[in-house]
């Protein structure tokens, strides 16, 4: 059901892992199925110098996280905000329809990080984003 490219990014995720001291962190939870994607960014002069991710989710969630880090690395913050979920899916040679929502997660995690950064937050403050709470609202 997944393209070879999705499987490749799932098997060998790029930029995976937590970052030691990121400038900012972005996180989204998926209200549909409860998954979480977190991205860690190093930003210098409005450019994303480094980025890593960690993901609690399906194969598509891992692959789209991996892909989005490749797409935004080295980009300016404004360019990074332009990256859409359709673009991520396209770069992965498509996703099954039921998995398109996972690509939203990856794009939204970046947007969340950049929003935090612009508001002068690190994203590591206790429970500071609504999306992360929705991920847990079924408990």
């Amino acid at each position: 059901m997944y393209s070879d490219k999705v499987m490749d990014h799932f098997q060998n995720p790029r930029n995976v892992g937590k970052m030691e001291d990121p400038d900012v962190v972005g996180e989204v939870g998926n209200p549909t199925c409860g998954d979480i994607i977190r991205v860690y960014l190093k930003i210098k002069d409005d450019i994303i110098e480094d980025i890593t991710f960690s993901t609690f989710g399906c194969g598509a969630a891992v692959a789209t996280s991996s892909m989005v880090t490749e797409l935004v690395k080295g980009k300016t913050l404004d360019e990074a905000l332009e990256v859409s979920n359709e673009q991520i899916a396209e770069e992965l040679d498509g996703l099954p329809p039921a998995k398109m929502h996972c690509s939203n997660l990856a794009a939204d995690a970046i947007k969340n990080a950049i929003k935090n950064f612009k508001e002068g937050k690190t994203g590591l403050e206790e429970n500071d984003n609504a999306e992360a709470e929705t991920a847990h609202d079924h408990h």
């Binding site: 997944y2 799932f10 998954d35 609690f56 989710g57 969630a61």
Partner: peptide
């Protein structure tokens, strides 16, 4: 901490 589909794949 992990998800089933990822385990299966």
């Amino acid at each position: 901490y992990i998800e089933g589909e990822s385990i299966l794949l």
